[in-house]
Amino acid sequence: MSDVFAAIADATRRAILDELAERDGQTLFEICARLATRHGVASSRQAISQHLDILAEAGFVRAERSGRYKFHHVDFAPLRAIVERWPVPADPPGPARP
């Protein structure tokens, strides 16, 4: 589970997950373009590729080749282990908050 926390600890990786959650199945070029225009991330393609590798190792991203292109797909299943370990109650215990 520590690799899950390490993977989402970085702001660029969280931005990549946000972009893939909004539009799944993007190429590296598309991800880089969206990060630059929407988040102001000016990292190189190599750096973004390394971030994608870390996310893949944690189970958040899987890649699929189709011809010359490699499409990246998001998978939030690793977060399920966190919720199973520390369930989030519907109503938190304690005094009501205004």
Rank of each mutant, 00 (worst) to 15 (best):
G25E: 06
D3F: 04
A42Y: 14
E57M: 02
S43P: 00
I54P: 00
I48D: 02
R38G: 09
Q26K: 06
F5N: 08
F29W: 03
G59M: 04
Q26H: 04
F29K: 11
S66W: 06
A21S: 11
R14Q: 13
V61W: 10
A58Y: 05
L20K: 04
R34I: 06
R68D: 14
F5K: 05
I48L: 07
A21I: 10
L17D: 01
T12P: 01
I54W: 03
S43I: 03
G59P: 10
Q26T: 00
G67I: 00
Q46D: 10
E64W: 07
S49P: 00
A15L: 07
I8A: 08
C32P: 01
R34C: 04
G67N: 09
A56Q: 15
E64A: 02
R14W: 07
L17H: 03
R34S: 14
A63H: 08
R62L: 09
G40K: 00
I16Y: 05
D10K: 07
T37Y: 03
F5V: 04
A9M: 13
L17M: 12
D18Q: 13
D24S: 06
R62Q: 12
G59K: 08
V41T: 13
D10T: 02
D53A: 15
I31R: 09
E64Y: 06
G40W: 05
R68A: 15
R14N: 12
L52H: 08
R38E: 13
A6K: 15
D18T: 15
S66N: 12
F29D: 09
